Simulated assay, not measured.
Amino acid sequence: MSSNQLPVVALALGDPAGIGPELIAKLTARDDLMRQANVVVVGDPWLWDAGQRVAGVPVRTTPVDSFAAVRARGTTSLPAFLAMNTVRPGDVNMGQAEAPGGASVLSLLDRCMDAALAREIDAICFAPLNKQAMKLGGLKHEDELHHFAQHLGVAGYFCEFNTLHGLWTSRISSHVPLKDVARYVEKSRIVDATTLIYRSLQANGIAQPRVAVAGLNPHNGDGGTCGREEIDVIAPAVRELAASGVPVSGPFPADTIFLKARDGELDAIVTMYHDQGQIAIKLMGFSQGVTVQGGLPIPITTPAHGTAYDIAGRGTANVDATANAFVIACRMGAAYRNRQSLFGQPQ
């Protein structure tokens, strides 16, 4: 692929008090990865300098004065750097979730989304952020995905996907209290979440994805003696999906369904709540996982782990998950550049 055909991928530095800046420095130091896209690092110059210093990897970049200038570059041998002034050094305390850092992240991501909508970039890969800091800094939603959806004008169903070594997971409820999970177990949500991940896997090159749905209750409800959601809601949703041309299986007990994935029998699992899938997938490879923001009109990815405040500034953060997120962003960004949505439909 020639340089002018490469997807333009924005790398956002993430929470300034966390490990994000050093991760982006380590990532951009890898020439093998940088050849996959026309890359622009986006963030505060002082923070970018600090990230390189902590990581111990000076990175040569080409300054640009706008997102539009990135695609117009004659050569992509070096990452571009777009300077933004979102937070002052004196307002950042390393390893602390605070309002200035959260506001910085919101500002940065909003400008990246605007650039994607304007077709100036093709994908966004952001370093870890902290929801508490973002809420202190002005986030009005339960998480960043809902903020993205509102900013992008999404009216349909959306949810996070978590990926690891070819296994994708989604869930019908996300960042909500555990006591509220049962009210989210609705047939329509199961159908929408399953259809979304099925179509997304097809758009990513899997012609016939093997998707399974988890149950909610212990032992899949034990025939209704330990909860009836499997009988009354989840199984009917699976039958409706099959009838509509989305051949999925389940429900399977949540404590065994990931054994099928481990043994290579599944491409994706739809879970009922956050930790049902997150505990399993993080045990399978905490330093490798990726979060894909599913259902949005533009590709947005991030490592599945957090800001790691406890090790921020030490230079020891593992870059593998960030590298995996970047690779997925490149692949999806190439499709987006070809005027396809995340799900392979013309925009």
Results as ranks from 00 to 15, higher is better:
residue 316 T to R: 13
residue 258 F to W: 12
residue 288 Q to T: 01
residue 266 L to S: 05
residue 93 N to V: 12
residue 204 N to S: 14
residue 281 I to K: 11
residue 85 N to G: 02
residue 14 G to C: 13
residue 344 G to L: 01
residue 302 T to G: 09
residue 136 L to N: 07
residue 53 R to C: 10
residue 89 P to T: 07
residue 233 V to N: 11
residue 72 A to S: 14
residue 210 R to F: 07
residue 123 A to V: 09
residue 22 E to Y: 14
residue 225 T to A: 10
residue 14 G to E: 03
residue 106 L to H: 06
residue 231 I to M: 14
residue 238 V to R: 03
residue 264 G to C: 10
residue 269 I to R: 07
residue 203 A to S: 12
residue 211 V to K: 04
residue 326 F to N: 01
residue 343 F to V: 08
residue 334 A to C: 01
residue 41 V to I: 15
residue 309 Y to E: 12
residue 58 P to E: 09
residue 305 H to S: 13
residue 137 G to M: 12
residue 160 E to G: 15
residue 330 C to D: 10
residue 204 N to H: 01
residue 92 V to E: 11
residue 10 A to D: 04
residue 226 C to M: 15
residue 120 E to R: 06
residue 39 V to E: 03
residue 260 K to I: 00
residue 266 L to D: 09
residue 296 L to V: 11
residue 317 A to M: 08
residue 22 E to V: 14
residue 162 N to P: 03
residue 13 L to A: 12
residue 9 V to G: 11
residue 28 T to L: 15
residue 207 A to K: 14
residue 146 H to F: 14
residue 204 N to T: 09
residue 339 R to H: 10
residue 319 V to F: 02
residue 83 A to E: 13
residue 95 G to S: 06
residue 343 F to P: 00
residue 199 R to E: 14
residue 63 P to H: 11
residue 314 R to F: 00
residue 251 P to G: 12
residue 178 L to T: 12
residue 311 I to A: 00
residue 206 I to A: 00
residue 53 R to L: 04
residue 299 P to Y: 02
residue 11 L to F: 07
residue 133 A to I: 07
residue 91 D to I: 05
residue 11 L to E: 05
residue 151 H to P: 00
residue 202 Q to W: 07
residue 208 Q to N: 15
residue 5 Q to P: 02
residue 305 H to G: 13
residue 174 S to Q: 12
residue 292 V to Q: 05
residue 334 A to V: 06
residue 165 H to L: 04
residue 169 T to Q: 13
residue 240 E to H: 04
residue 265 E to Y: 00
residue 217 N to V: 10
residue 139 L to Q: 05
residue 306 G to P: 08
residue 210 R to C: 11
residue 34 M to G: 00
residue 132 Q to H: 14
residue 72 A to K: 15
residue 199 R to V: 05
residue 55 A to K: 01
residue 57 V to P: 00
residue 109 L to Y: 09
residue 92 V to I: 15
residue 5 Q to D: 11
residue 251 P to R: 08
residue 298 I to G: 03
residue 54 V to H: 03
residue 8 V to P: 02
residue 127 A to P: 07
residue 73 R to F: 06
residue 101 G to E: 12
residue 80 A to F: 02
residue 119 R to T: 08
residue 80 A to N: 04
residue 237 A to P: 08
residue 316 T to I: 08
residue 163 T to Y: 04
residue 328 I to F: 04
residue 92 V to L: 10
residue 340 Q to D: 00
residue 280 A to G: 13
residue 303 P to C: 05
residue 106 L to Q: 06
residue 57 V to R: 10
residue 204 N to W: 00
residue 276 Q to S: 08
residue 77 S to F: 00
residue 119 R to C: 05
residue 196 L to I: 06
residue 248 V to E: 04
residue 299 P to I: 06
residue 125 C to S: 13
